[in-house]
Write a protein that binds this DNA or RNA. Structure first.
Lengths: 319, 319
DNA sequence: CCATCTTATGCTCAAGGAGAGTATAAATGG
DNA sequence: CCATTTATACTCTCCTTGAGCATAAGATGG
């Protein structure tokens, strides 16, 4: 299994033994706000050592989350595996491998006695919420800072390239906003030393970009999770994992918008959902509504068996 | 970093220390045949211990592959991380974490003195090549075996569900073939004990499904890589990593078809490539051709800087 | 030189999907 | 009754996509 393929194999690494951690990005949506489970006062994602008593990483994660929140995880997907050169910066400390997961669940209060709670994910990425138009911090703070960073490059060519990258990833200079580039944006800010987590490493002054920092690379992991989820909702019906058993189409739409960070065209959204036969009417109507009452729907779990679901793109507005 | 979030934290796992391995799915395409780098006479993917002397997993993989083949890796992407309960089935052996990567490269002979060489990936998955229509083994061997497996379920409902799954993933009963379901198909065959690697575990008789087996779960990892690549070529211009510097549009098309395992509509393929401005003419013409000589093109690396490339879907034929 | 074969390349057409807007219905609170 | 709010039904147009026709430019065999 662990064959060394090379004849010229390099010497086996001393201290090849490492520790394995799980890091979870657990997402729920409540009232149009996407939330993630956090610990340590919102400064870290839940994480812990992997227990090899489980059959697989997935089951380990499920068991762990259920023990913590008392509720089962609907959808689970592996995100990324990071290798650290050793914890706490000590090159000689034990090496660690962090395996991160994305998990979708219905919002539920964390059981009593637990340190964890839910935090809005836009607290960590204020520039990612475009539901009410481009956030002010983008034009007022981020764009100027990025422009300054681009100008600081050594040659005019490099300056242009830097700015082009910024404009593309952040939708500047009249370019379209691409909501899926969450990770690229975070990494660009990091590169420009505008992120506290990076600032320390670079020995820079206090950063000016808004957004709550997190321990170590947890905010990067969160960015990875958000990006993955934003991409996924377009071709897999995973939003339903975040919904209650019955919901109106507007509630469903608001959840999608919350995740995507942008608005969708209402009529087209309904058309899309209905023509894909993803939902069915329950017969009941929503109760506490303001305007005309809406029909209640439920997810048709059968579709998952009927076809290899491929569709579910969402009709984003261009404006 | 490795905080334990729970107050009710379970006891730290004894023997939390593990070993970390890299497993690589290295892909190249030659003359319309997709190939992967293998070792041990084609029965295993290249793999080895992760060296923590590198900055990241990616750089570790790159260095390792270059040392082995003498050629740089163009595109690298993490695939999946598996945790084994311990090697060689011993529950008490050292636990191991396998981190798998997908890497794209131009075909090149492996340097002398190396054990590795290139194997066609359809040797391992004969049922995945639909370029000349559905392979004979599908209708003659796989479908009947799956039908038998479905019939063996305990209740009529279960039998129907099983068969429905089979029909969807394998495109039976007049359903469309979905080339991206490589992993699902492999896992279904595994579940039905039609895969040698699984047969042992289930204590079944010799399997009848064609396809060369591999060590441990390497064939599953390969399936993961193929699936990922087949999905990726539709929205990212990664095919070019597999092409020589200059190529004709037909050569490009053949490479895409080789990966996707199905044919595309020639004229529409050209339209797609050209309208996305992914290539530019070199001015030269192909030399050794049979029919009318074709223009040579090169990949426009500039597009990667110009826009967040989103398109590159491929126009599959429905027939 | 011509017929034929092979691949390259240009162009048209029709159906379906996606973005956007109009119009009407059904509730609530003055 | 009216304004307001949300729900729901259609329509329209543009673009994409699958598919096919037609022509061009080479090679080869007679």
């Amino acid at each position: 299994m662990a064959r060394s393929p090379q004849k010229k194999s390099s010497a086996p690494v001393s201290g090849n033994a490492v520790t394995a951690d799980l890091v979870a990005v657990l997402v729920a949506v409540t009232d149009g706000t996407p939330k993630i489970m956090t610990i340590a006062g919102g400064s870290a994602l839940p994480s812990g050592p992997f227990e090899f008593t489980h059959r697989s990483l997935q089951t380990a994660l499920r068991a762990w989350v259920e023990a913590q929140t008392g509720h089962p995880l609907g959808y689970v997907e592996q995100l990324y595996t990071f290798a650290d050169r050793g914890r706490s910066g000590d090159a000689k400390g034990p090496h660690s491998v962090s395996i991160s997961y994305l998990g979708l669940t219905r919002e539920d209060k964390v059981g009593e006695g637990f340190e964890a709670h839910w935090s809005g994910w836009y607290d960590y990425f204020p520039w990612e919420d475009h539901r009410a138009g481009a956030p002010a911090c983008l034009a007022k703070i981020i764009a100027p800072q990025l422009k300054a960073w681009a100008k600081a490059a050594s040659s005019p060519t490099l300056q242009r390239e830097r700015w082009q990258r910024c404009a593309i990833t952040f939708g500047l200079d009249d370019r379209d906003w691409n909501e899926e580039l969450v990770l690229q944006r975070y990494e660009l800010l990091w590169e420009a030393s505008l992120i506290p987590e990076a600032g320390r490493a670079h020995g820079r002054e206090a950063p000016v970009v808004p957004g709550k920092p997190m321990t170590a690379d947890h905010r990067r992991i969160l960015a990875t999770g958000i990006a993955r989820l934003r991409a996924k909702i377009k071709y897999r019906p995973v939003v339903f994992e975040l919904m209650p058993a019955e919901f109106t189409l507007l509630q469903l739409q608001r959840s999608v918008e919350a995740l995507a960070g942008r608005l969708v065209h209402k009529q087209n959204f309904r058309r899309l959902i209905e023509q894909q036969e993803l939902v069915e009417e329950t017969g009941a109507m929503a109760a506490d509504t303001v305007g005309r009452p809406a029909k209640l729907f439920r997810f048709r779990h059968a579709v998952l068996a009927e076809r290899a679901v491929a569709g579910t793109k969402l009709p984003l507005s261009r404006t």
